[in-house]
């Protein structure tokens, strides 16, 4: 598979492709949102405004299905940001790929902006094993486990912060329910929830991109297949964005809403 360019600054590794993807995703979302709301009107809404209102209403009803209506209102913007950002991120890797290959007769370290991506030994070893060396410079940010882990950490923080501040008593009591023996399981659950969020999103999008890369190796025969898979990836991207968002709010709702049993 493609390698990802990781450069080191001050002993910390930075994955340039992921950072680029995150920045591009953010900019795309910002620009789209900004353009969509540039011409707001109370009396004569444009088509774009109607669409945005539909998105907001959709998100609102989605969240409202997981928690009481008056609590859902505060989270609509967060949920919309999440769903739009993840959806755009998921789609970003589909149309564009930017790959640089390392020639077979290249020897010595591979560098980028004065930074070493691969050491001379690694290149030689790869050549010796007849491996294909190529760097992918662009991808979906959500096809990177580290990026989805970031999103999941935000969710993790939100779940517990909101639980502690808004539902203090029941939040802590919740760990001992239904029986105190369940404490280890409940603790494990706090870890598994965000982990599954991150892994699910990453795995779906990454798998989609791997398959695209694989189909591309087929050459021109793969074109119809690629078209079908790209279409399906859009669907998967939308589903995963929706899933991530609704699960986030299911988890938040679990921690902030106390229901009498």
């Amino acid at each position: 598979m493609h390698l990802f360019p990781v450069v080191e600054f001050g002993g910390i590794g930075f994955d340039i492709s992921s950072i680029l993807a995150i920045v591009v995703s953010c900019i795309v979302v910002m620009v789209l949102a900004r353009v969509a709301v540039s011409n707001l009107s109370v009396h004569n809404p444009s088509k774009v405004q109607n669409f945005m209102e539909w998105v907001i209403d959709f998100v609102h009803s989605t969240i409202a299905s997981t928690m009481p209506l008056q609590k859902a209102k505060k989270f609509v913007i967060l949920a919309t940001t999440l769903i739009v950002f993840i959806f755009v991120s998921n789609l970003l890797g589909l149309p564009l790929g930017f790959v640089t290959e390392v020639d077979h007769d290249h020897h010595g370290p591979v560098t980028f902006m004065g930074q070493e991506l691969l050491s001379a030994e690694e290149v030689d070893e790869a050549h010796a094993n007849n491996e294909h060396l190529a760097f992918a410079w662009f991808k979906s940010p959500t096809a990177d486990i580290a990026a989805t882990a970031g999103l999941a950490l935000v969710v993790f923080f939100l779940i517990h912060f909101l639980g502690i501040t808004q539902n203090t008593k029941h939040y802590f009591k919740h760990y001992l329910e239904p029986f105190p023996v369940m404490l280890p399981l409940n603790l494990l659950k706090t870890i598994t929830k965000p982990t599954t969020l991150a892994l699910r999103l990453y795995a779906n999008i990454f798998a989609g991109e791997v398959l695209i890369a694989t189909i591309l190796m087929l050459g021109w025969i793969g074109i119809p297949l690629l078209a079908v898979w790209q279409g399906f990836s859009i669907f998967v991207g939308a589903i995963q964005a929706f899933l991530f968002t609704i699960l986030t709010f299911v988890y938040i709702s679990e921690s902030i809403v106390h229901e009498d049993h």
């Binding site: 990802f4 990781v6 910390i12 590794g13 930075f14 994955d15 992921s18 950072i19 995150i22 920045v23 953010c26 979302v29 910002m30 949102a33 900004r34 969509a36 709301v37 707001l40 405004q49 945005m52 209102e53 907001i56 609509v76 913007i77 967060l78 919309t80 940001t81 950002f85 940010p141 990177d144 486990i145 580290a146 990026a147 989805t148 882990a149 970031g150 999103l151 950490l153 935000v154």
Partner: peptide, 29 residues
């Protein structure tokens, strides 16, 4: 492969995006 800096950057980027959208896009909407 897991590059921890990406996670931090993602968190920061998401928070910035949320603040931006809240202030300039979805808030007004």
């Amino acid at each position: 492969h897991f590059v921890p800096s990406t996670t931090i950057i993602m968190i920061v980027a998401f928070i910035l995006l949320y603040v931006f959208l809240n202030k300039y896009a979805f808030g007004p909407l």
